[in-house]
Amino acid sequence: MSKLKDLFDRKQSGVLNVYCTAGYPGAESTMEVMEALQENGADIIELGMPYSDPLADGPVIQASSSIALLNGMSISRLFEQLAEMKDRIYIPVILMGYMNPVLQYGFERFCSDAARAGISGLILPDLPGYEFEHEYGAVVSKYGLDFIFLVTPETSEERIRKLDQLSSGFLYAVSSSSTTGSDKQMEDVSRYLQRLKGYGLKNPVLVGFGIKDRQSFETAGKYANGAIIGSAYIKALEGADDVRTSTKSFLDSILVKQTD
């Protein structure tokens, strides 16, 4: 059974997905960062594969990608680092990245290695629905991976329904039509999320882009099943001496403690 499906069967609200860049801040940080996220309350990890030209990301995530590339990250090296992931990470992990490096690695080989490493799903923002349906989707399902599409406030209802059909695991709702990390009034977002909720989609919905603190996380949680935090966490790791401490204090600032 899909780990994502299992998660959303258990938990329908306040699901926290945290993005981190593989090979950032240090070349060998990947597993340490993921363990710190798991220990401190993340429900899902979105692991970014660094790319030289990340169009859908903002400056903070692009900068972390550049550092990771300087650190020598590549997809091959990532799969080496993930060799022990199955034993150490029990929450769902999704790989996020761009098509070009994946194509060079070989799309089927990539899906096969991802599945073997225990990866639950993929987000490839520049893989369009048409090519997914006609060429790549069958490979993704062959290896039992979930595939998550993005929708935005400008996406038409018809297309949202279509992308919901093509997605499994969850649907990624971009909160404002913008690259990651920008400020945007949460009120607009609420209206958009209410609209999504009204469609009765088959997938749970997580909100991303612009979620940076407890308040925005909670607002997102009112209308969606949870949220995705990216840039704010990468910022918190910037210049961090100790990944574990920084991760703990960051997640503590987002999540309401059970004992509160």
Partner: peptide, 11 residues
């Protein structure tokens, strides 16, 4: 060719 774009550019 094709149109390999993130959803944000789709409309």
């Amino acid at each position: 060719g094709g149109a390999y774009i993130p959803e944000m550019l789709y409309p």
